[in-house]
Write a protein that binds this DNA or RNA. Structure first.
Length: 429
DNA sequence: AAAGTTTCCAACCGCACTTAT
DNA sequence: GATAAGTGCGGTTGGAAACTT
């Protein structure tokens, strides 16, 4: 059976909205809220279908929308998130405050997609179309590995989103349950070793880390100082926080999102996301790796060349959360030099128009580095400082034997840093 | 200055999912 | 469980603006 149309199309206006219509819609929603979108047009005196009204509101009239040029930081975020999420514009939009999914989608299609194509990167797969054209192609296949990692990450993220959706529902049920039984723990029912990554007071810092420009947004819109994660500004995004866990029954668990054999025959641990109640990742749940699935008796412990996700997360979180001011400065260097801090730039030499093209290319190189060569950034210390297992994780970047794990580290660092930097109200993380 | 082309983005369309009956 | 209503989302389009010839 077909669905009935969202509205009777006869007599309803289509096309661009007039200022009068905008005013009517704005005035009505300000006074009454939107309520049922289908019923709204009649009540507001608009000859539009409810869907059109909703779209106009969410994409244009809503007061918390930032318009105008995308910052480089935003562009980088979009590219990274697109590599992970694909065309999940609404999901991407949750990481770009005040930007609508429609706007991001348009920007991707009109700017970023072309730019990546121009750089020789397939904007769909985020893999290099032609190795010869891509920086790092002569790196012994590093970029290919990175691209493969991104592909893997996309699968990872896809399944994670599904699990997250399920867990949102569970979380809601749980919270309802807790209203009756307040003492009930909200943690996962699975046997898990919860590793506390960040306490509630990290929230402000975390969001400052995201972006200098966005910090103000966060502080204003969320009214959060410490222990926040509660939406201000009337926003009710109930945002379960994802947690990572290494599953023990990956074959049947719907939350399992993948495994990845590494060069050493080990297995990158399963990852499971478990709902929580704040807006940022706050814990990683580590389960015992099942022994029946993999010939990998030591997957949980600190490993030789392949850090567990847990370790990576720990290193990453500690590194990033522990040095917010540092990162803010890093952002600036990233703007012009990409993630490679060794690259020398003429930052500040902006009075020469002839160099604009050069700068643009440098920015593009930065994007390339972000996507294909997340190594060499100094956001993550690979030393033992972040390991909770007490085992040192020093890695020599020049050691070929460590390439795989090193790339994994940077790969995860890039992802986790993004996660870490996400606004606390994100419904995804 | 006019015509042609490209770029940009607001808005539409239809599908999928959730919720209500 | 079946159906309808409501909503969200991603793909696509149409037209205005900008740019080029």
């Amino acid at each position: 059976m077909g669905r009935s149309p969202c509205c009777d199309k006869v007599g309803l206006k289509k096309g661009p909205w007039t200022p009068e219509e905008d005013q009517k819609l704005l005035a009505y929603i300000e006074e009454h809220g939107h309520g049922s979108w289908r019923a709204l047009p009649a009540k507001a005196g608009l000859e539009r279908c409810g869907k059109s009204c909703r779209l106009r509101w969410t994409n244009y009239l809503r007061p918390d929308i930032k318009r105008g040029k995308f910052s480089l930081q935003e562009e980088q975020t979009i590219i990274q998130l697109h590599a992970l999420l694909g065309n999940r514009w609404s999901a991407i939009a949750t990481h770009l405050p005040k930007r609508t999914d429609n706007e991001i989608k348009n920007y991707w299609n009109t700017h970023l997609k072309k730019r990546l194509t121009k750089m020789g990167i397939d904007p769909v797969t985020h893999k290099p179309k032609n190795d010869a054209l891509v920086p790092g192609s002569g790196d012994g296949g590093h970029s290919n590995k990175a691209a493969a990692n991104l592909s893997h990450m996309a699968q990872w993220e896809s399944a994670r989103l599904e699990a997250e959706a399920r867990l949102v529902r569970e979380s809601k049920l749980r919270s309802q349950h807790q209203q009756h039984f307040p003492s009930t723990s909200s943690s996962s029912s699975s046997a898990q070793v919860i590793i506390r990554l960040v306490n509630e007071s990290s929230i402000s810092t975390t969001n400052k880390d995201w972006n200098n420009n966005n910090a103000d947004w966060f502080l204003r819109s969320n009214n959060v100082s410490n222990g926040g994660g509660i939406m201000g500004n009337g926003e009710e995004l109930e945002s379960p926080t994802s947690t990572l866990s290494f599953s023990e029954n990956n074959a049947s668990d719907p939350a399992i999102i993948g495994e990845n054999s590494n060069n050493n025959g080990g297995v990158v641990p399963m990852i499971e996301f478990v709902g929580a109640n704040s807006g940022i990742i706050r814990s990683i749940n580590v389960k015992e790796e099942g022994s029946e699935d993999h010939d990998n008796s030591s997957s949980m412990g600190p490993f030789n060349n392949n850090p567990s996700l847990h370790e990576l997360a720990m290193m990453t979180m500690e590194s990033t959360w522990g040095s917010s001011s540092h990162n803010n400065h890093e952002d600036e260097s990233l703007r012009t030099s990409g993630s490679n801090g060794a690259h020398v730039n003429n930052v500040g030499n902006d009075d020469n128009n002839a160099e604009e093209e050069e700068e643009k290319e440098e920015e593009e190189l930065g994007f390339t580095n972000l996507l294909l060569n997340t190594s060499n950034n100094n956001e993550v210390s690979l030393s033992s400082e972040g390991g909770d297992g007490g085992e040192s994780h020093h890695h020599n970047n020049n050691n070929e034997n460590c390439d795989s794990s090193y790339e994994d580290k940077n790969y995860w660092n890039s992802i986790l840093h993004l996660v870490n930097s996400s606004p606390s109200h994100s419904p995804i993380f």
